[in-house]
Design a protein around this nucleic acid. Structure first.
Lengths: 213, 213
DNA sequence: TCAAGGTTTGACCATTTGGTCAAGGGAACC
DNA sequence: GGTTCCCTTGACCAAATGGTCAAACCTTGA
């Protein structure tokens, strides 16, 4: 009999549970982010986690349960950088700080970015509700903030939605399309992220800085 | 016995072959672009093409063969917009025209874009050679053109590689992350592409137009 | 130390999957 | 009309896959 999921919830009861659930989620992140949900197998995940398949299924009741656990965890953190964009800051700097936070996340958490990308590209079968729910709400909220900044003259006029899309796409590109970027630039490690940072800073600064006069 | 692939090559011999290979490739584009290679099945493709599985395998020897045929066809057309960016044009307008061509492709050929995205996100197992080959060569060539434009003063100084990456990511975003975009904007059909066009035109125009003085 | 409960696994199962094959059904050219 | 080659399919196969289960193995706390 598997673990009582009702009582497990977020907090593993024992040391072993903690270690193994973490190992499983880490391994699953590796596998799912590389092959997508349907392209990943329990055997792959079990092997990557150093467990037997039945043992893996002792901790999670099914393949989808593992995936859901990952996605839930991811959605918690993924929107944090956007949430931190505050209306009371200096507009251009607030947005640029957001851009850099997103780029930093693409560098530090490329697997999470690719897990998300895989899910969206394939039609977001498991997170459509979250997209139309908390994500949409948050974006609308921040779009209003941006429109407020524009009205105050502190920001050049710009469609806030497409601005946000362009921030997402340009930053996540360095995680999601990593192999392409590396295939073209042939960088040493993460060296190209410095250039990307400078480029994106310029790109969005020029876009957003209001023109005098 | 299946079709003689040596003689088939690009040109189907008969009417029926033409019709069926086209139906298969179209169906396969649907399926592969949605589920990725490993997540797609021959049954799905056969059903979508209106053929039985053995019949499908009469035209293509294996699953990978179908995928390879698609990818090969795709790579032919995918780089055309970039190739069309000519050194003898007006720099800012040349690049902006490229941006709009890419956006147009994202709207007209989202399946192709997603097929490509799926392939790259999952590590580009089948096209790494093309990335490090013709793609890299073409990008380097165009980066040189852009650097020439910058040297002539007709273009603001900018890292040409990251410029190209940002053009790819912002435009393809509307195909690859289509469900997310639609989940947030809730547009009527393709109405949001007009706004995207205006936004990207502004974004890159501001980035690229050299500052007087 | 011993019981109770937590952990691990080999064997197993039904289904799905990529792929084969032989035989039958058509189109087309003579 | 008949022959030749093209096309189609039902039946089949081996391997892979998600998942189950009972039995055995550990930990831990009294």
């Amino acid at each position: 009999m598997g673990i009582n999921r009702d009582t497990l919830g977020r907090k593993p009861r024992t040391r072993i549970q903690k270690k193994n659930t973490e190992a499983i989620l880490d391994a699953a992140l590796d596998v799912f982010s590389q092959y997508g949900f349907r392209g990943s197998t329990l055997d792959q995940i079990a092997k990557a986690a150093g467990l037997s398949k039945p043992n893996l299924l002792y901790y999670f009741p099914s393949k989808v349960a593992i995936h859901r656990a990952l996605i839930d965890e991811l959605m918690q953190n993924w929107l944090d950088p956007l949430r931190k964009m505050q209306a009371d800051g200096e507009p251009v700097e607030e947005i640029l700080a957001y851009v850099l936070r997103k780029l930093e996340m693409a560098r530090e958490f490329p697997r999470e970015s690719r897990l998300f990308a895989n899910e969206i590209v394939q039609g977001a079968p498991n997170i459509m509700d979250k997209i139309e729910g908390e994500l949409k709400t948050l974006v609308e909220e921040k779009a209003a903030v941006i429109n407020g900044w524009i009205a105050s003259g502190a920001l050049a006029p710009v469609d806030p939605y497409h601005l946000i899309f362009s921030i997402w796409s340009t930053t996540q590109h360095y995680a999601d399309f990593d192999v392409q970027v590396r295939g073209i630039l042939k960088p040493e490690g993460d060296a190209h992220f410095k250039d990307a940072e400078a480029y994106l800073d310029t790109l969005f600064r020029r876009m957003l800085t209001p023109q005098a006069g």
